[in-house]
Every structure is written in structure tokens, then in C-alpha cells.
């Protein structure tokens, strides 16, 4: 079960603006789904390592082994990437005032 207050809190954390009706719907649906997730509670997981790595090799070898060389090169993509940003100013991504 999840309360309306919790739904509001999670929506804010997730930066999702939900309408009043959506909140109510979400409360019902999430409760049903979380209820189903509770099935996992019957599994004995004591002493079991979490599988943060879907492939064992990431666990065995230090992360730096899969990183490419840290060399500086000019990216030809910069302009195109900025073109796909909604609002830019003088080559920077424009953000609304925070304060």
C-alpha cells in the first residue's frame, strides 16, 4: 500500500507534475503493483550477494579496465548536440533562474 501523501512525495522527487486525478489513479495502481512486488519477500536472500553486475566480468576486473584512454580530442558533435537542446545562449545550455 502507498498513501496519497507518499505519492505526492515521490512525484516531487521524480519531478513529475501530476494532476489531482492522476495522483488518485497512481495511488491505486502503485498499491496493486507494490503488493505484487511483495512476492519477493518470501525469498530467503540471507547471505546472497546483490547482482549489481549482469556480467561477472565487471565484478572481477576493476572498473578502470573497461575504460578507454583518457585522451583529449576535439568533438565534432558539440554543435549538433547544442542544436538539439531546447534553449541555448552563447553556446551554453540555458537554464531557468534557480534563486
Amino acid at each position: 500500500m502507498i498513501s496519497k501523501k507518499e505519492v505526492n512525495h515521490i512525484a516531487k522527487l521524480a519531478r513529475l507534475g501530476l494532476g489531482e486525478k492522476e495522483i488518485e489513479k497512481m495511488e491505486k495502481e502503485l498499491s496493486l503493483i507494490l503488493d505484487y512486488f511483495n512476492l519477493l519477500k518470501e525469498v530467503d536472500v540471507s547471505g546472497i550477494e546483490p547482482a549489481f553486475y549482469s556480467d561477472e566480468r565487471f565484478k572481477e576486473s576493476p572498473a578502470r579496465d573497461v575504460m578507454r584512454e583518457d585522451s583529449v580530442e576535439e568533438s565534432k558533435k558539440a554543435k549538433k548536440l547544442l542544436d538539439s537542446v531546447p534553449e541555448t545562449k552563447e553556446g551554453f545550455v540555458k537554464v531557468k533562474a534557480i534563486l
Binding site: A14, M26, I33, K96
Partner: peptide
């Protein structure tokens, strides 16, 4: 403000199932 802009863009831009999974 910035928070309101986030809430509005994401609240309107995503469909129901995507919102549901982000919430979960």
C-alpha cells in the same frame, strides 16, 4: 521557477506507463 518548469515539462511530456514506472 526551475522546479515548476521540470514538473510541467515532465508531467505533460510523458505518457501514463512511463510515469508509472518512473514513480515505481
Amino acid at each position: 521557477n526551475l522546479l515548476d518548469a521540470y514538473l510541467k515539462t515532465r508531467g505533460e511530456g510523458f505518457g501514463d506507463e512511463v510515469k508509472r514506472r518512473i514513480m515505481l
